[in-house]
Amino acid sequence: MADGVGKRRSAVLGVLLLLAAVALPAQAVAAAPGEPTCAVRDSRLTELSGMVATDDGYVMINDGAENEARRRIFFLDRDCAVVRAVPYPTRPLDTEDLAVGADGTVWVADVGDNDRSRETIAVWKLAPGADRPVLHRMRYPDGPHDAEAMLVTGDGRPVVVTKFSANLYAPTGELRPGATVPLAKVGQVKLPASTTSNPYGLLGRSVITGAATAPDGRRVVLRTYADAFEFDVAGGDVIAALTGGTPRATPLPDEPQGESISYSPDGRALLTVSETAGQPAGTRPTVLRYPLAAPAPSGSPARTPEPTGATPVQRSAERADRDISVVSGAAMAAGALGVLLIVVALVARARRRTTPGK
């Protein structure tokens, strides 16, 4: 990644990958890769963190970028060519996910917080035909969290899903420009266990990096670096679906850094796109299509790879949410200490070789 936020995220992911490799070797599953739909060739779109598919093409955003030209809401055609780029009136901090309401309003989730240091998070709302999005601030009730996923309910209520603990937060009142609205914790998601191969191993199968709502509002999906988990929504109650439903799993194997997900406009497939900053030169972000199986009939059990409920992976992820900065610091300190000990041993060995009588 090109910016400070990206570098910190890369460091954190590196630590997570190391921990996952030590805790449990990655287990591959027989899962089909997504079908390429189109490749994004605009050089401003390499740190993709959010995507929504529309009838005309796509809406995409980067995460927080140092390069001012990348801080835009990008509209693309069906061939993934940029046709419009809307700037923010002030600099966003860390934009991570997207949603489009039934009225065409674009919602941008400015909720990323790798250091867990933000006093507030925000959503930007871009009305149809507007040339600038409007900022709406929110505050967690229990301190900062890192989040990369957001859903918008049918009545226009954003639901933020935290990355490591899968906690759900929603505003306690109507969002207003210039005001900070308190959030309330409204539940927690329990994802099934997974063995899907991905670049980040064990923890890559549990951290939540994106979310989307089906065009008809009857399904929602959460994704990790490895899988997509689709929940049926009854009566428009997204919270009840996420906290009490049994999801259907769609493996998303070996995506480079999958943080974006959307339903296709007809609702028959899931679409994803990966961030490519840090990938080999010439790698283009590519929209991938994963066909969906028909939902289970009412009253029938949904398809899932494992029984739901708290798993050791999720408990580990919850601890990571609290302690990731400590782990990162400890890892760096341990590495520095190891190098120092090696240097001391080499110096001592050289001295023994040059001391008379030795």
Rank of each mutant, 00 (worst) to 15 (best):
A2K: 10
A2E: 10
G4M: 07
G6V: 06
R8A: 14
S10P: 05
V12F: 13
G14P: 01
V15K: 04
L17H: 15
V22F: 03
A23Y: 04
P25M: 01
Q27A: 14
A30E: 12
A30D: 14
S43I: 04
T46Q: 06
E47Y: 02
D55L: 01
D56C: 05
G57C: 02
M60N: 02
I61A: 05
I61Y: 02
D63L: 04
G64Y: 01
N67L: 06
R71M: 09
D79C: 02
A81G: 07
V83G: 03
A85R: 04
V86A: 02
P87C: 09
P87Q: 07
Y88G: 11
T90R: 15
R91W: 09
D94T: 07
T95H: 03
D97I: 12
D97C: 10
A99S: 15
A99P: 07
D103P: 02
A109H: 08
A109Q: 07
G112A: 05
N114F: 11
D115S: 15
R118I: 11
W124T: 13
L126I: 05
A127Y: 10
G129T: 11
A130G: 05
D131P: 06
V134C: 11
H136L: 05
M138L: 14
R139Q: 05
Y140D: 08
P141M: 06
D142N: 12
D146Q: 12
D146M: 10
A147S: 09
A147L: 04
E148G: 01
M150S: 12
T153L: 10
T153M: 08
R157K: 13
R157A: 10
R157Q: 14
K163P: 08
F164E: 13
F164W: 15
L168H: 08
Y169K: 09
A170V: 11
A179S: 15
Q188T: 15
V189P: 00
K190Y: 15
L191N: 12
N198H: 08
P199V: 12
G204P: 06
R205C: 08
S206E: 14
G217D: 03
V220P: 10
V221A: 11
V221S: 03
L222G: 07
R223E: 03
Y225G: 03
D227G: 14
F231T: 03
D232S: 15
A240G: 04
T246K: 11
R248S: 13
T250M: 01
P251Y: 12
P251R: 12
P251C: 12
L252Q: 03
P253Y: 12
D254T: 13
E255I: 12
Q257H: 10
S260H: 00
S260E: 00
I261N: 03
P265D: 03
P265M: 05
R268G: 15
E275Y: 04
T276S: 08
G278M: 09
P280Y: 02
V287E: 02
L292N: 09
A293R: 03
P295W: 09
P297C: 10
G299H: 00
P301S: 05
P301M: 02
T304P: 00
T304R: 01
A310T: 14
T311L: 06
Q314A: 15
S316M: 00
R319Q: 00
D321V: 06
R322T: 07
R322A: 09
V326D: 13
V326L: 15
G329V: 08
G335S: 01
A336M: 10
A336K: 07
L337F: 07
L337K: 01
L340Y: 04
L340I: 05
L340H: 03
V343L: 10
L346W: 13
L346Y: 10
L346R: 13
R349F: 13
P356Q: 07
G357S: 13
